[in-house]
Design a protein around this nucleic acid. Structure first.
Length: 255
DNA sequence: ATGGCTTATTGTATAAGA
């Protein structure tokens, strides 16, 4: 079974890339973030023709998350129950017996911003939600754009990022709180190249110079760890014309 | 280098992303 996550930065613009990618990679689960479109514009028909079912929760201009799969998508849940949130950032469903949580964690903008407080509150609500989900679904994977680089080796220039969002201590502490629930960073279960990143700034020739961050992750619950066989970042879509600034992160499981 | 892109908006400049 192959799981993947990809922040597409507008599905309207990136649909051709997504269709090409699923045709080539044939993921069993693909989680998308930043679809930036309302449900009525979501391309259910094009995805269906490509053999993919989908669920989506979106809004105009900002946010929006979707789960795609050629398998049955069961027991869907939109948003974080009990957490009143105007922003469409979370969607959950069960696929092949695995609880799949697709998250677009807030960026936070800067440490002195209201958006940073929103980010920390959102992470707190996510953690409480996952604790409850894990009790009901021992096999769980949390895929998405976390907007957190968990360690300095996930940052091209850690010194340049001191005091910024994505790397601050409270954000990394929240990430460790997910680990404390028994969720494991599947990418780090395997040997990886140094300077492995999932996002590069559009500016400053960031991709060409590999000035990136690893902020897109696939965390898996303990019962899934022994089934993980391989994880990698697919940089090919980042090389296309009009790419997303993020590229897919992939996990292969032996089930 | 405080942004040199890229996205969307009922646009013609602004906000936001990371």
């Amino acid at each position: 079974m192959k799981l993947a996550t990809w922040n597409v930065n507008s599905l309207n613009v990136r649909l051709p890339h997504v269709l090409d990618w699923v045709a080539t990679e044939k993921p069993d689960v693909l989680c998308l973030q930043e679809t930036k479109q309302e449900d009525i514009k979501f391309p259910y028909e094009a995805l269906s023709q490509a053999g993919y079912n989908a669920i989506h929760i979106g809004q105009k201009t900002y946010n929006g998350v979707a789960i795609l799969s050629p398998h049955a998508i069961e027991n869907p849940q939109l948003g974080i129950p009990g957490f009143n949130d105007e922003q469409k950032r979370l969607i959950t469903a069960t696929i092949n017996g695995i609880r799949i949580v697709c998250a677009y964690i807030p960026n936070g903008q800067s440490l002195d911003s209201d958006k940073y407080q929103y980010k920390l509150g959102w992470l707190e609500a996510l953690t409480a939600y996952l604790q409850n989900e894990l009790a009901q679904h021992p096999k769980l994977a949390l895929l998405g754009d976390y907007n957190i680089a968990p360690e300095d080796r996930d940052v091209h220039d850690p010194a340049a990022w001191i005091g910024q969002v994505l790397v601050s201590e409270p954000e990394r502490h929240a990430f460790q709180g997910l680990s404390a629930l028994g969720l494991h960073d599947s990418f780090r279960l395997f040997d990886q190249e140094e300077a492995s990143f999932s996002w590069w700034d559009y500016r400053m020739a960031g991709f060409r110079r590999n000035l990136g961050m690893r902020i897109d992750h696939i965390l898996v619950s303990t019962p899934l760890v022994n089934q993980c066989t391989r994880s990698w970042i697919d940089k090919e879509p980042r090389k296309l014309e009009r790419p997303s600034d993020h590229t897919p992160v992939v996990l292969e499981l032996s089930c």
